[in-house]
Design a protein around this nucleic acid. Structure first.
Lengths: 132, 132, 132, 132
DNA sequence: GTGGTCTAGACCACA
DNA sequence: GTGGTCTAGACCACT
């Protein structure tokens, strides 16, 4: 699991880290039950403060993507991944809408847009298969 | 053009305002050449700070969605809308990837995901037709 | 709103602060829409670090008891307070069970236990009436 | 006596273990004079660290719920159970108050709250009768 | 001036 | 050694 952070991005580091881990799960390179590095080792691995890692882990735990075991470490949610909650749908649509709107403005057709989504979907799911 | 802002959202107000205007253009309720309220009147209309509106307008101008004329006021880009630039593609993909990854984690199939995009695309483009 | 913290308690400070605010709401001394001190002023008022206050506020926001407006400050949830969610019920029962079990062990009758709850309920709700 | 631990809970393991034993006493499934497994066997039974069990036992002994004899092992307090001490009352009220306050905030009436306590009281005392 | 983020260092409870 | 908490100081975006 290689974490790539953009320190110049306007997206907070803890948020980027969360996204990378979620992508890892989506791609299959992180499987349910897999251990994650401790906050300290993850922090030193990617060169950021341990509190930033801690924040990312805590939020991922709150959303149900990982489990934090007391003094044992962190693992990818081994039971059921979080499902399609109304809050998730609201959040997802709120983030998706501006993207689609801008795409329309810039002249992308519906089919082009769908193709981009298809490509990115395949890119994510196929990334993991290499690691299997 | 009705602007809906969520003051509690973590999305900055100026960003929400930009998105609303872009959605207006995408839906067709704002057409090329259409005038936009002045910074001052927009600010008082929706009850936010003048500088916030100014920031939104300036950024929209930078991206090429609107034109700001000193005397004539603000109008939707009457000439060619901004196209598919590499910067746009990078930004779009950067925002799209985490959304798709999380959708996969939560068990959405590729087809369900595409359907959501289709629905939202139709929602945006049809919203405008009512206003024609 | 007077905040009383026990720095010696095993209950984390941010947790005590959350509880005090929730009690304030329950008693009616904090009403929906009422403003709360900024993280900085609350922190200096009660002599703790602003990050600790921030943590309490953030968690209260996540649970829906308060709203954090961007750059405007913090107010008690003016709309609908959080309701009876399954997660709340689980958490409440998990905390309540050991208390009731120990009470039984120590020889409290069911009626005595209920009376304690009644008394405490009245104590909380009447505290606020003085402040009306 | 079946011990159920939640390794992901924020409640320390030794605390959960204490609570389970107290609930066992409250329900009657553990009676005064009944033997408890040794620290060693309890630890291996429920798959936790020996020191964790030791800590739970020591605290239970301090509070007077069990007796620890060097040779004879561990037994539920055969003489008088700990009573209603001022320290107990303070601790109980400190834990009870936030629960009741939150219940009020979430719209539970006093009667609903009392009913929850009644139900839980019956749940605990009736659980034991099955084991008699 | 407000909250949000990041860094840093320290202590503690837990296992 | 692990995560949890608290403190402290700094910078930034937003309004």
């Amino acid at each position: 699991m290689i974490i790539q952070l953009d320190m110049q991005s306007d997206v907070p580091i803890y948020n980027q880290l969360m996204n990378q881990i979620i992508e890892g799960i989506a791609s299959g390179s992180l499987k349910p039950g897999d251990p994650l590095p401790s906050v300290r080792s993850m922090a030193s691995d990617i060169g950021i403060n341990l509190h930033t890692v801690n924040k990312a882990y805590t939020l991922l735990k709150q959303e149900g993507f990982i489990q934090i075991h007391r003094q044992k470490g962190v693992v990818i949610q081994p039971d059921t991944m979080p499902g399609i909650t109304p809050e998730y749908q609201d959040k997802r649509n709120a983030y998706l809408k501006p993207i689609i709107a801008e795409a329309i403005c810039r002249g992308l057709s519906e089919e082009q847009l769908l193709q981009i989504v298809r490509d990115m979907h395949n890119e994510i799911t196929q990334t993991g298969e290499e690691n299997v």
